[in-house]
Nucleic acid binder design. Structure first.
Length: 199
DNA sequence: CAGCAGATTGACT
DNA sequence: GTCAATCTGCTGC
């Protein structure tokens, strides 16, 4: 079952980030590839120094963050890595949730080929750049709808509250006090959770 | 318009 | 543990 617009359009991006854990992120570019979301981070738009849309910034790259909830926001980091985000809230409120790690489910062979690997190791999909490559997501997919496009999020599994760990975000030390906000969530003990540097 | 830093990864000392 | 790869966008000349 694909998540409805009403899931994405809510105001509380942090709550949505927490609820995305256990959901199934699916892409269908040829073969179906998918994985359970095990790690997310919330980016709270204009009031969050770590967000690209801090203070209402608009550029060609961030424009899609101002779309309505349920839109894919993919951007290039360090000129190499495609990072996949889910836009939330209503139009003109630039909230987004970064998907940092998934646990592979469908199309593992296809993902191994895309990542030029032969064995299923955590490094296949642990990390935002890694999972995007495994699922075949690139910046050309930014702005497409998660409700009707070939990238979508399905119901997945139920994650108990006790399994969810709250933490600070990774790689955003430059955001000063906002770097300390507990906006990162991951499933306790899952081996596909990225290592990061902020642990 | 040059210089710099970044929501990262992977190869190498 | 260190460092390069390589694009977008901000800052300052």
């Amino acid at each position: 079952m694909v998540l409805a617009e009403s899931f994405y359009n809510r105001k509380d991006v942090v709550k949505i980030a927490r609820e995305l854990l256990g959901k199934l992120l699916v892409t269908e570019f040829g073969a179906r590839t998918s994985g359970i979301i095990v790690e997310t981070e919330a980016y709270a738009g204009t009031t969050d120094k770590a967000s690209h849309a801090y203070k209402g910034r608009r550029t060609g790259r961030t424009e899609v963050m101002y779309s309505q909830g349920g839109t894919a926001y993919v951007y290039l980091c360090y000129g190499i890595h495609h990072l996949f985000n889910v836009v939330t809230n209503i139009k003109d409120i630039p909230h987004a949730v970064l998907i940092r790690a998934i646990e592979p489910v469908d199309g593992i062979e296809t993902m191994l080929e895309r990542r030029h690997k032969t064995k299923l190791l955590p490094s296949l999909t642990a990390g935002p750049g890694a999972l995007s490559q495994a699922l075949g997501i690139t910046t050309s997919h930014t702005g497409i709808s998660l409700l009707t496009g070939n990238i979508k999020i399905e119901k997945g599994i139920t994650v108990k509250k006790e399994q969810i760990v709250e933490a600070t975000r990774v790689g955003v030390a430059y955001a000063m006090d906002d770097a300390l906000r507990p906006y990162r969530f991951y499933i306790k003990g899952n081996r596909f959770v990225s290592k990061g540097k902020g642990l």
